[in-house]
Design a protein around this nucleic acid. Structure first.
Length: 262
DNA sequence: ATGGCTGCTTTGAGCAGA
């Protein structure tokens, strides 16, 4: 079973890329962020025709998240948003797929550490910590938390650590929040298989940042301790970032043994 | 580099992203 996350920066624009990547990557569960679609505008029929079921949480203009599952897999017990944190922004959707609780999240950006949006980010991160703690208990550690975290966990995840030091996405409180999630019994899937590899999941559209490979690793897949024995591989696939009119993010994936019932 | 680029918006220049 292969799970992946991808911030598509408008599903309306990127649907052809999503369909192409689903076909070429053979992904079973694809979590999307930044749909930028109202709930009613989700391309359910096009995805069904490609063999994927979906649960989604849309919003006009910004945000929006979705969980796509390769049929006959289907999202069950879908929860939109964090029940402990009323939020007008559609940033979180959770569903059970097979025997795994999948939590797809578009973490707050924060803009700058002096911004009110940064305070919103810190409050949102605290709510996420409590929410995931509860999901880990309720699902006995069979949890995958994946999405655009808008946090570069370490300096090795940043193309220019000196320039980014104490900036948003790299600040100590944000990195502490990331460590707090790991402390719940979660592991960074990419780092588990590539402890020393410098790799990025996002590159600014401007200044030829992708061509020069100047990016950040801010999209992550964390898996719960109960899944540790089943995890087989993880990677960042930079292929779609080379396609015409790409998202500024590229997919990150995790492969697990299929050995489950239900 | 106080930028760059892209997508969105009751179509326009401004917001947001990271």
């Amino acid at each position: 079973m292969k799970l992946a996350t991808w911030n598509v920066n408008s599903l309306k624009v990127r649907l052809p890329h999503v369909l192409d990547w689903l076909a070429s990557s053979q992904t079973d569960v694809l979590c999307l962020q930044e749909l930028k679609l109202e709930q009613e505008a989700f391309p359910e029929a096009e995805l069904a025709a490609a063999g994927y079921g979906a649960a989604w949480f849309g919003q006009k203009t910004y945000n929006g998240v979705a969980i796509l599952t390769r049929l006959p897999l289907a999202p069950r017990d879908v929860v939109r948003g964090m029940p402990n944190y009323p939020d007008p922004q559609s940033r979180v959707i959770a569903a059970t797929v097979g025997d795994i609780r999948v939590i797809c999240a578009y973490f707050v950006n924060g803009e700058a550490i002096t911004s009110d949006k940064y305070q919103y980010k810190l409050a949102w991160l605290a709510a996420m910590q409590h929410y995931v703690a509860g999901e880990m208990r309720q699902h006995d550690g069979r949890v995958v938390l994946l999405g655009d975290f808008n946090i570069a966990p370490a300096d090795s995840d940043v193309y220019d650590p000196a320039a980014w030091q104490d900036k948003v996405l790299c600040s100590q409180p944000e990195r502490a929040a990331f460590e707090g999630l790991l402390a719940l019994g979660l592991t960074d899937g990419f780092r588990r298989f590539h402890p020393d590899t410098v790799a990025y999941s996002w590159w600014d559209y401007r200044a030829a940042m992708f061509r020069r490979n100047l990016g950040l690793r801010i999209d992550h897949i964390l898996y719960g301790h109960a899944l540790a024995e089943r995890v087989r591989d993880a990677a960042i696939d930079t292929t779609p970032r080379r396609w015409e009119r790409p998202s500024d993010h590229t997919p990150v994936w995790l492969a697990l043994d299929d050995s489950f019932s239900t």
